[in-house]
Amino acid sequence: MIKYMRLEWRKLDRLNVWIELSIYFIIMMFLPTFFINVVLPEYGQSFTQAIELNSYIQMGIVLFGGSLINHVFIEQYKNKTMALSFGYPISRKTLFAAKIMFIAAAVFAASIISFILSGLSTYVINLFAPFIEGPLSTADVIQYAGTMLTRSLLITVISFVPLFLFGIWKRAVVPTIVCSIGSMQLPNFSSFLHVHPETVVAVLAVLGAVSLTASIATAEKLGEV
Rank of each mutant, 00 (worst) to 15 (best):
K3I: 10
R6D: 10
L15P: 02
L15A: 12
L15C: 06
W18N: 07
W18G: 04
W18F: 15
F25R: 06
F30M: 11
F30G: 09
L31N: 07
P32S: 07
P32A: 06
Q45V: 07
Q49H: 08
E52K: 07
L53T: 07
N54G: 08
N54L: 11
Q58E: 12
G65D: 09
S67M: 15
H71F: 12
E75K: 14
T81L: 03
L84M: 14
F86Q: 15
P89E: 00
S91Y: 06
R92N: 14
T94W: 04
A97H: 10
A98Y: 09
M101T: 07
A106C: 08
A109Y: 08
S114T: 13
F115H: 12
F115P: 05
L117C: 08
L120Y: 07
L120M: 13
T122L: 14
A129H: 12
A129P: 04
I132P: 04
I132W: 08
E133F: 03
A145G: 02
M148H: 06
T150M: 14
S152L: 01
T156F: 01
V157C: 00
V161T: 14
L165G: 02
L165D: 03
G167C: 04
K170Q: 13
V173I: 11
V174R: 09
V174T: 15
T176H: 05
I181Q: 08
G182D: 08
S183T: 05
L186V: 01
N188T: 10
S190G: 05
L193F: 11
H196Y: 13
H196M: 01
E198Q: 14
V200T: 13
L204T: 03
L207I: 09
L212R: 03
A214L: 15
A217G: 01
A219P: 00
A219I: 00
G223L: 04
